[in-house]
């Protein structure tokens, strides 16, 4: 708990609160419970990693947080308010508080739109009257700059950009409305290892600057260990354990976490787990 106490988390109210969130898909006669009464708080400015094997329900949980999927039961409070997806005003309010970066940056952009329009879309939807056409153009340049891209990239189409550039663009777009929470669904798994590290650095830097909370969904504890404040481990639609990054990595309380830790690939197998925690500690210092 010593690492946790230095974090400025406790006094503020959660950005998103999940209580008893459940989701069941019915396939003919079989019922498939993807989420089973999940309780989770996402705190302002923190990086919460949501890890689990594929099929554990982590992506469904992320989709529920951003409002892409409706839960069967339970409540989702965004800044203490219940924002119903079917209510237009509530949906607009949620869009400005919670944004998402998808796994495949290429698929998450309309191939017929230039980068300028991709990044401008959230602004045109919510800030058209406030900013005006010239204001939107300036803001797009600003956003591209904030993710270390040249403003000249704005004239290109998504297919004319590299994978890393696309994910930066997706991040710029997600940050356009200055959300309080950014949900990242495996944001680096479609990228080369060298690009992955740069994107993770960028996210950390942006978080420091803007104070946005990150919900980082991943199947890979190695990726998460370097950036997470807290880790939530999911399996079979339930949260197996939630705790500070260091604690979960060094003394996992659940079998699932131990299995995930064992599955992490290492350049040097003899130094498997200590290496993970070493990185986590370095980042925190």
């Amino acid at each position: 708990m010593s690492a946790q106490s230095t974090e400025p988390l406790a006094p503020e109210a959660p950005v998103v609160t999940l209580r008893g969130v459940s989701k069941t898909y019915r396939q003919r006669r079989r019922q498939n419970t993807v989420l089973d009464a999940v309780d989770l708080d996402i705190l302002p400015g923190e990086t919460l990693a949501l890890v689990g094997e594929s099929g554990s329900g982590k992506t469904t949980l992320a989709r529920i947080v951003v409002g892409l999927t409706d839960p069967d039961a339970g409540r989702i409070l965004t800044l203490g308010k219940d924002l119903d997806r079917r209510d237009k005003q509530a949906a607009a309010a949620r869009a400005q508080l919670v944004q998402m970066v998808f796994q495949d940056p290429y698929a998450s952009m309309n191939p017929r739109m230039r980068i300028r329009d991709v990044v401008a879309e959230p602004l045109r939807t919510h800030r058209r009257t406030a900013l005006g056409a010239a204001g939107i153009r300036r803001r797009v340049d600003e956003l591209l700059e904030s993710v270390d891209l040249e403003p000249s990239i704005a004239h290109r189409y998504p297919h004319e950009c590299s994978g890393g550039q696309r994910q930066r663009i997706a991040i710029a777009r997600a940050l356009a409305l200055e959300p309080r929470l950014l949900v990242l669904d495996e944001p680096t798994s479609a990228l080369d290892v060298s690009v992955q590290a740069k994107i993770l650095d960028l996210l950390a830097e942006l978080q420091e600057r803007t104070g946005v909370a990150l919900l980082f969904v991943s199947h890979d504890l190695a990726v998460v260990s370097g950036i997470a404040d807290r880790i939530a481990v999911m399996a079979d639609g339930r949260l197996q354990e939630v705790g500070p990054c260091r604690e979960v990595l060094t003394s996992p309380s659940s079998e699932v976490t131990r299995r995930l830790l064992d599955s992490v690939a290492h350049p040097d197998p003899r130094r498997a787990n200590p290496r993970l925690t070493e990185r986590a500690g370095r980042r925190r210092a």
Binding site: V66, A95, Q99, S108, M109, E121, R173
Partner: peptide, 11 residues
């Protein structure tokens, strides 16, 4: 995904 992204953006 790009349509879902637009929905998340509240378009």
């Amino acid at each position: 995904e790009f349509v879902e992204a637009a929905r998340v953006m509240g378009v």
